[in-house]
Amino acid sequence: HNLTITQGKLFFHYNPKLCLSEIHKMEEVSGTKGRQERNDIALKTNGDQASCENELLKFSYIRTSFDKILLRWEPYWPPDFRDLLGFMLFYKEAPYQNVTEFDGQDACGSNSWTVVDIDPPLRSNDPKSQNHPGWLMRGLKPWTQYAIFVKTLVTFSDERRTYGAKSDIIYVQTDATNPSVPLDPISVSNSSSQIILKWKPPSDPNGNITHYLVFWERQAEDSELFELDYCLKGLKLPSRTWSPPFESEDSQKHNQSEYEDSAGECCSCPKTDSQILKELEESSFRKTFEDYLHNVVFVPRKTSSGTGAEDPRPSRKRRSLGDVGNVTVAVPTVAAFPNTSSTSVPTSPEEHRPFEKVVNKESLVISGLRHFTGYRIELQACNQDTPEERCSVAAYVSARTMPEAKADDIVGPVTHEIFENNVVHLMWQEPKEPNGLIVLYEVSYRRYGDEELHLCVSRKHFALERGCRLRGLSPGNYSVRIRATSLAGNGSWTEPTYFYVTDYLDVPSNIA
C-alpha cells in the first residue's frame, strides 16, 4: 500500500525493539523526510534493546553428524571492536523451508527459537588472519532439518551509529543413524509349514526405512522333555500350542467401542483428552525405555581390526524358502538304536541362519518350516543398504507352526516275539517326523474274553527296548493296539495285532 503524509511529521519514542533503520525507511515511504526535528525521533529510546544489523554474515563451514552440527561463519568486528559482546545463534526444527525470524513471537518477546549466546573469538592483530567464530550444536535429532541463523550482539553506541551483522536463515539436516526397533511384532501360524509375521514401523526411523531383515531359527525343545518319565503317576503330560491366527481386521481397528449394538453396526467412541494424553505418555515412556535398553543392555560386537582377528559373527547367506525346513542338525536320541526319531534339535552355532529381506511392506510369510516346531524370529529395521547396512537392534518374537495331521501315527506293522515265561516283546517304529517329539506310547492289549488293559511306555523305555515287553501273560489269544502321544496330543491307534500265548508248562520236552 502507498502511504503519503502531505502535512505533519513523524514522532517515535520509547520503541526499544524498533531499529532506527526501520524508522528511516518509514520517513522515505511516507514522504516526511526532512520535516522531523532532532528530538522527534529519539536516538536513545528507539532500538536500544534490539540488534540492528546492516551487514550480512556468511557461514564459512558446515559439518553434520547424526546428532551434531558444527558451524563456522566469517569474522565480524565493528569499528570499535570492544562493542562486540558476542553472537546469538538461533535454531529450531523446520520440516519445511518457510521459516521466518519472527515465527511464534508474542507480545512478551518470546519466540519459538532456541538461542545460544556465543563469546567472540580472540581478536588477531592481523586483519587478514582473524579467527572464524563458530559453535557445535549438540543433542539434535537424527535425520531432522533445522533452520539456523546467527547475528551479532553489540553494545549501545553513544554516537548512535547503527552497526551489526546478521546471516540469512539456512537449512541444515542432520545425518541418518540406526533406527529404533520395529514396533509390535506379531507372529502367527496359518499352516503346519508357515508363519505369518506382521509389525509396525519404528517410532524413530532416523532416516528413510529402506528394508527390513527377518531372521528365523528353529528352537530346540526343553531338555526336561527328553529326561522326564511322563508315565509316572502324578506327572502331567506336557503340551505345546501353536500360535493362533490373526483376529479379523475389524476387531483390530483402534479407537473402536468394545460393545456392539445388537441391531447392527455401531460407531466408534472418540477417545477423551485424558485417554489420548495417557497414550502419549505411555508411548514416550516406551521410547525412553527402549533407548535405555539399547544403550545399557546391548553391547556392540567388536569388529575385526587390522591384526587379522576374525569377526566372530557368522556370515549372512541367503537361502531359498524351500530350504528352511531342514535348518537344524538332527541327532538321534540314543545312538545305539537307529530307529528312534531325530527330534532332539541342538543347533550348531556355526550354522548360517536363513533370512529374508523385506522391502516396502511390514509383513512376511515364512514358508518351508517344520510342522509343530518353535521358531525364534528376529526382526531388524534398516535405513541404508549400501555401502553397508545400517540397521536397528533386533526385536524378537516366537511362534510355533501348526501340527501336521497323521504325523504322530505309527507307520509300519507292530511285530512281536514270544519268549519263555510268557513274555512277549512288542516292537514298532517311532514316527519319523512327529509333531514336536514323542513323549510316550500307549499300549492297549486284551486277552479274548477279558477286559482291555493299558500300559504306558516312556520315551526312554522305548529307546532301550525298541518297544516294550509284556510279562506274566496268561495263555490265550491276544490283540494289541499302540498309539503315540506327542507334544500336540495323541496320534491314531494302530491296526490290531494278534498273537497267541501258550502255557509254557505244557511245552513238550526233548528229553527222552
Rank of each mutant, 00 (worst) to 15 (best):
S305L: 07
K278G: 08
R446P: 00
D222N: 13
V327R: 12
S474T: 09
D222Y: 12
Y212T: 13
H454Y: 15
Y504I: 12
Q219T: 11
T373K: 11
V457M: 11
P332K: 05
V331L: 12
Y396K: 12
Q275K: 08
E290Y: 04
S363H: 04
L232V: 10
N339Y: 10
N422R: 13
F462T: 03
Y504G: 07
S283F: 14
V423H: 09
F419E: 00
G325R: 04
E227S: 11
E282Y: 10
S223E: 14
V358K: 13
P205H: 04
Q380S: 07
G374P: 10
H371D: 01
K317Y: 09
E351M: 13
S479P: 00
P354N: 06
V296G: 12
K271L: 12
I438R: 01
T241P: 06
R316M: 10
T307F: 08
D503R: 12
A330V: 10
L232R: 14
E221S: 14
E281M: 06
D408A: 02
K287L: 06
N422G: 05
T272G: 07
I276Y: 11
S474E: 14
C456W: 00
P244E: 11
L455V: 11
P403Q: 06
S305M: 07
P338T: 11
E265T: 13
D503E: 07
V296H: 09
V457E: 02
P403H: 02
V423S: 06
C468A: 06
S243P: 12
E282L: 11
C391Q: 02
S274M: 03
E249V: 11
W493V: 03
G436D: 13
H454L: 09
E389A: 06
T502H: 04
I438M: 03
Q219D: 09
R353G: 15
D291T: 10
S305A: 10
I209M: 12
F215W: 01
D408P: 00
R318E: 11
Y230E: 05
C269N: 10
H461W: 12
F298M: 14
F499H: 01
V414N: 01
E224W: 09
K406V: 14
T307H: 12
A405E: 12
S341A: 04
G436V: 14
C456F: 02
E247G: 08
F462S: 04
P431W: 00
P244G: 12
E290H: 15
S283N: 08
W493T: 01
Q219W: 14
E265L: 09
D408N: 13
L379K: 00
L321K: 14
T502L: 13
A484P: 12
E227N: 12
N383Q: 07
T347I: 13
S283E: 14
S304T: 07
C468W: 11
V358M: 03
P431A: 07
F215V: 13
G306W: 09
E290F: 15
A399T: 08
S274Y: 07
R481S: 05
A263H: 06
T401V: 04
Y504R: 04
F355M: 11
H352I: 04
T401Y: 00
S367V: 11
E282A: 13
Q256I: 13
F355R: 05
K278D: 15
P346S: 12
T328S: 15
H211Y: 13
L505K: 09
V397A: 13
S486E: 00
H294E: 04
T328V: 15
D273V: 07
R390V: 10
A336G: 05
P300M: 15
P245K: 10
S509H: 01
L235K: 06
R483N: 01
F246Q: 11
L232C: 13
Q380E: 11
Y230L: 11
Y448V: 08
E388L: 07
W242C: 02
V424S: 01
F285P: 10
E290N: 05
R390C: 12
Q252A: 09
A220K: 06
S363Q: 14
L321W: 09
S268D: 08
W493P: 01
S342W: 02
G374S: 07
A394K: 12
E430L: 03
P245R: 13
D291E: 14
R316V: 06
S304D: 15
A309Q: 11
R301Q: 14
Y448T: 15
K302M: 11
F337T: 13
N477M: 06
Y478C: 00
W242Y: 05
S474I: 11
K287A: 05
F226T: 09
S320N: 11
I410T: 03
H416N: 06
V331M: 09
R319I: 05
F462R: 07
E290W: 05
T340L: 09
F298H: 14
Y230H: 03
T288P: 09
H294V: 08
D408V: 01
Y292G: 02
E389C: 06
G264P: 04
E279P: 08
E227P: 11
P244N: 14
T288L: 12
V297H: 13
G264D: 15
P245W: 12
N360L: 06
L293C: 05
I209R: 14
S203T: 10
R316W: 15
D323Y: 13
R390M: 02
